[in-house]
């Protein structure tokens, strides 16, 4: 019995598929011998239904106060400094009232207010547009409200950067482990306890999830001297909720429906 080319190709195709399928099935069974139930949160981990921040700018008095907070975050998270605005990566920084809260245009507002600095970072929105658009779930919302980045999974499409209405996201346009022309490394001093990123992925503030897991406050909170308070927004007795109920607070672009989890006390202690 002889077979023609058509039959041969059919048989070859089917047997290849069968072979691959069987291999995949066997692998699938074999891989599951480490149960997911063997993972649990640490005993000291801080828990919340929805983490949030209240920022009281009256507690920031000098340039040093801002710099200290930014440094606390950027140094422990190995945030590189490329020395140019095009490639810039930032997790927390300051901007003035006029640009942090656009849409509040007012010809007669005092210059002092317009130029008043505000700390800005990821809003960890309750309805995050970045999470909605991510095609790989590389950015996702945890059950405690933190909008997280899985750097292992990010393909670097930057859809999330287009979607974020707060400019909170930065992209690794080059290798953060590299050095500039004069041999200066982009990360001055590596924190050996935290990873860096690789070129081609998006990054942002992660609410210090790695510190919460150990029972520590976020780094910016710790360095802010009371200027940044964190807590559970869903808990009416939490410090953040107390502050929100006592003070007039605003959020960035609430009209977009993203429901930011950072509240800013305007005026602060002076007129509270």
């Amino acid at each position: 019995m002889s077979i023609d080319r058509r039959q041969f190709l059919k048989i070859a195709g089917v047997s290849t598929l069968l072979g691959l399928g069987t291999a995949a099935a066997v692998n699938g069974i074999r891989r599951d011998d480490v149960e997911a139930s063997q993972m649990e949160p640490g005993p000291d981990a801080l828990k919340a239904k929805r983490w949030g921040f209240v920022v009281d700018m009256s507690k920031f008095k000098t340039e040093e106060d801002y710099a200290r907070v930014v440094h606390a975050c950027h140094s422990i998270h190995n945030v590189p400094d490329y020395g140019n605005p095009k490639d810039e990566i930032k997790w927390i920084w300051k901007d003035d009232f006029e640009h942090t809260f656009p849409g509040q245009e007012d010809t007669y507002m005092a210059a002092e207010m317009k130029e008043k600095p505000f700390m800005v970072f990821c809003n960890h929105c309750a309805q995050p547009p970045c999470v909605r658009v991510c095609p790989t779930k590389a950015t996702f919302k945890r059950t405690d409200g933190i909008v997280m980045m899985d750097m292992h999974r990010c393909i670097g499409c930057r859809f999330c950067m287009a979607a974020c209405p707060y400019g909170s996201r930065s992209f690794n346009f080059r290798d953060p482990r590299g050095k500039d022309e004069s041999g200066r490394p982009f990360i001055k001093e590596l924190n050996p306890e935290f990873p860096t990123r690789t070129k081609g992925v998006v990054e942002k503030c992660t609410f210090c999830y790695e510190r919460l897991a150990k029972g520590l406050k976020p780094a910016c909170v710790e360095a802010s001297g009371g200027g940044i308070v964190f807590g559970d927004l869903e808990d009416p007795n939490s410090e953040v909720r107390q502050l929100i109920s006592k003070h007039y607070t605003i959020r960035r672009k609430p009209e977009l429906g993203t429901q930011p989890s950072i509240y800013y006390i305007v005026g602060g202690n002076e007129n509270a």
Binding site: A36, M39, R142, A213
Partner: peptide
Amino acid sequence: SAVRDGNRVYV
């Protein structure tokens, strides 16, 4: 487990 579920302890 660590990144996505926040479970940092392995038994």
